[in-house]
Amino acid sequence: DYFTVDMEKGAKGFGFSIRGGREYKMDLYVLRLAEDGPAIRNGRMRVGDQIIEINGESTRDMTHARAIELIKSGGRRVRLLLKR
């Protein structure tokens, strides 16, 4: 199942961390959800969800650093296409 999650940044960021990336020879996944962060309050994202797109850009062969950069580059908002 594919689904989109739109979030607005909180005081401590978006409230999730990721693992994976090209340099680890793996796809990008949601690693952790911060307690009471925007990701957990949104209610749609879960640990283990695969991140397919960040702000419309495919994560295929994307490095971990580039993924972080893209998440931050959207300013106060981020849109993720996830797969569960």
Rank of each mutant, 00 (worst) to 15 (best):
R32M: 14
Y29C: 11
L31D: 14
A39Q: 05
M62A: 07
L82E: 00
M26E: 15
R66Y: 07
G20M: 02
A11P: 10
Y2S: 11
Q50N: 10
R41E: 10
M45Y: 00
R60T: 14
L28A: 01
I52N: 05
G56R: 06
L81D: 05
L81N: 13
D36W: 05
D36F: 09
K72N: 14
K83Y: 09
Y2E: 04
V78M: 08
D27F: 05
G21C: 02
Y24S: 13
A11E: 07
L31K: 10
M62T: 06
M7G: 02
S17R: 13
G48W: 04
I52W: 07
D49R: 01
G10C: 06
I52K: 10
L80M: 09
E23Q: 04
I52V: 12
V47A: 12
E23H: 03
A65S: 10
D36P: 06
I54V: 09
V30H: 00
E57D: 13
E35R: 09
K83G: 15
R32P: 04
G10K: 15
R19L: 04
R32T: 14
V30D: 00
R76L: 13
K83M: 11
I68H: 07
A67L: 02
T59D: 01
L81S: 13
F14W: 12
M26P: 04
K25P: 05
L81P: 00
A39Y: 04
L33T: 05
M7I: 15
R77E: 09
N55L: 02
G48P: 01
F3S: 08
G10D: 13
K12A: 12
R32W: 09
R41V: 11
I54H: 01
R76S: 13
I52C: 14
N42I: 09
V30Y: 02
I54S: 00
A34G: 11
P38N: 10
E53M: 07
M62R: 02
K9F: 03
A39F: 06
R19A: 10
G21D: 02
L28R: 01
K72Y: 13
R41W: 07
I68S: 13
P38L: 07
R79I: 10
E53C: 09
E8C: 15
K9P: 07
A11L: 15
E53A: 10
L31G: 13
G75N: 14
Y24H: 14
D1V: 07
M26G: 12
V30E: 00
V47R: 07
E8A: 07
M26H: 11
R44D: 14
M26V: 08
I40P: 07
G13C: 04
D27T: 07
F3H: 05
A67H: 00
L28Q: 02
M45G: 02
Y24G: 14
S73F: 07
A65W: 07
E8N: 06
G43C: 09
R22S: 12
K72R: 12
I68V: 11
D27G: 12
N42C: 08
Y2F: 15
G56M: 05
T4F: 08
T4D: 02
Y29V: 12
D36H: 10
Y24T: 15
R32D: 14
M7F: 03
G21W: 01
R66S: 08
Q50H: 09
L28E: 01
R32L: 11
I52D: 05
L31M: 14
K83R: 14
M7E: 04
L81Q: 15
G15A: 02
I54F: 00
I18Y: 02
F16E: 00
E69L: 11
F14G: 03
Y24L: 13
R84F: 02
Y24E: 15
K12F: 06
I18P: 01
L70C: 08
G13A: 04
I54G: 00
V5Y: 03
I71C: 09
E8S: 14
I68K: 14
R66C: 11
T4G: 06
H64T: 08
E53H: 05
V78T: 10
T4W: 03
G43F: 05
G75I: 05
E35I: 10
D49M: 03
K83T: 12
I40E: 13
L33V: 12
G75Q: 11
K25A: 12
L80S: 00
T4C: 05
L31Q: 15
T59P: 01
S17W: 13
F14D: 02
P38Q: 14
G75E: 13
R66N: 11
E23P: 06
G74R: 12
G74F: 03
R44E: 15
R60C: 10
L80N: 00
V5W: 04
V5M: 04
S58Y: 07
M26S: 13
A67W: 02
D27C: 06
L33F: 08
D6I: 03
D49V: 01
N42G: 11
F16S: 01
L80E: 01
G56S: 11
E69Q: 11
L82C: 10
I51M: 06
N55Y: 02
D6Q: 07
M62N: 02
E23S: 04
S17A: 13
S58R: 09
V30S: 00
E35F: 08
R66Q: 06
Y29A: 11
D27I: 04
G56W: 03
D49K: 00
F3Y: 04
A67S: 07
G20Q: 03
G37T: 09
M26Y: 04
L80A: 02
F3Q: 05
H64M: 08
R46K: 15
G56H: 09
G56Y: 06
E23G: 05
E53S: 10
G10V: 04
L31V: 12
L31H: 14
Y29D: 13
S73I: 08
K12D: 08
T63I: 04
M7V: 11
Q50A: 15
Y29M: 10
E69G: 09
G48E: 07
Y2H: 03
N55D: 05
V30K: 00
N55V: 01
R19H: 14
F3C: 10
D61R: 08
E57Q: 14
Y24D: 15
A65L: 09
K25Y: 13
R84M: 04
L33R: 02
R77F: 12
G15E: 03
K25N: 14
S73R: 12
R44F: 06
A65I: 08
R19P: 00
H64F: 11
M45K: 01
D61W: 05
V5S: 03
K12L: 06
R46L: 13
N55K: 02
N42A: 13
G10F: 03
G15N: 03
S58G: 10
V5L: 09
Y29H: 09
V30N: 01
K9E: 15
G43A: 12
Y2A: 04
Y29G: 06
A34L: 13
L70N: 09
G15Q: 03
G21R: 02
D49C: 02
G21E: 02
N42Y: 09
L70R: 11
I52S: 08
G75L: 04
L70Q: 15
G43Q: 09
R60K: 08
G74S: 14
K25I: 06
I40C: 09
A34F: 11
G13F: 02
E69S: 11
L31P: 04
R41M: 15
E35L: 12
I18K: 00
S73P: 02
G56A: 05
T4L: 07
P38H: 07
E53L: 06
G56E: 10
K12Y: 12
G15R: 01
D27M: 08
D61V: 06
K72M: 12
S58M: 07
N55E: 03
L82A: 04
S58A: 12
K72H: 07
D27L: 06
N55H: 04
A39T: 05
R79F: 06
R66W: 06
I54A: 01
G15K: 01
V47D: 15
V78E: 00
I18W: 02
Y2V: 03
L33M: 14
I71S: 02
D6R: 06
K83F: 15
S17K: 11
L81G: 15
V5P: 00
E69M: 12
E35G: 10
V47Y: 05
G48M: 05
I40H: 14
E69D: 09
E35D: 13
Y29N: 07
N42D: 13
I51Q: 00
A65K: 13
A11Q: 15
T63C: 08
R76Y: 10
D61K: 08
R77V: 09
L33E: 02
R60N: 13
L28M: 10
I40R: 12
N42T: 13
M7D: 02
I51L: 10
K9D: 12
L70F: 09
R41Y: 07
T59G: 04
M45V: 11
G20D: 02
S73D: 13
D36A: 06
R44I: 11
M62W: 03
I40V: 12
M26C: 11
G21K: 02
Y24F: 07
G56T: 07
E69K: 05
S73M: 12
G74K: 11
E8Q: 08
S17V: 10
D6A: 06
F14M: 06
K9Y: 04
R44L: 14
G15M: 01
R79A: 12
G43S: 14
